[in-house]
Computed example of a mutant assay.
Amino acid sequence: MANKPDWSKEEQAVQAVQMAFDLSNDIQRAFRVSAAIQNMSTSDMVRKVLELPYQKTRARPRLTITLKDEDFELLARKYGLDPQDRAIIRQRVSEDLQVFARNYLTESE
Rank of each mutant, 00 (worst) to 15 (best):
E107P: 05
W7E: 13
R86N: 02
K56E: 14
T64W: 02
V33W: 04
L63I: 05
Y104N: 08
Q12I: 13
L50V: 12
M1R: 08
L81V: 10
Q12E: 14
S41Q: 06
E11M: 11
F100S: 06
E51V: 12
D26Y: 00
K56R: 15
D96G: 08
A2Y: 02
M19A: 13
F21E: 07
V14H: 11
V46T: 04
K4I: 05
E10C: 04
N3E: 10
Q15A: 08
T66S: 15
L50I: 06
N39W: 00
P5T: 01
N39A: 07
R47I: 02
A76I: 00
N103Q: 11
N39G: 10
A30W: 00
Q91C: 06
R102H: 11
F100E: 02
D85F: 00
A16R: 10
R90T: 03
Q18R: 09
M40E: 05
Q91T: 08
A101T: 13
Q15P: 01
M19R: 13
I89Q: 00
V14S: 13
L105Q: 11
F31I: 05
D85G: 01
D22P: 05
N103G: 02
Y79G: 12
D6R: 11
Q28K: 10
V99H: 05
T66V: 12
S94W: 00
V14G: 09
S24P: 07
L50Y: 08
K68S: 15
R58L: 12
V93H: 01
E95I: 08
I89N: 00
D96C: 07
E107N: 13
D71L: 06
S24M: 10
Q12W: 12
I88T: 13
Q55N: 15
A16W: 01
T57V: 15
F100Q: 08
L50M: 14
Q55V: 14
F72P: 03
Y79L: 12
L23C: 01
F21L: 13
P83L: 01
Q28I: 05
A87N: 07
F31A: 02
M45N: 02
M19N: 10
E10V: 07
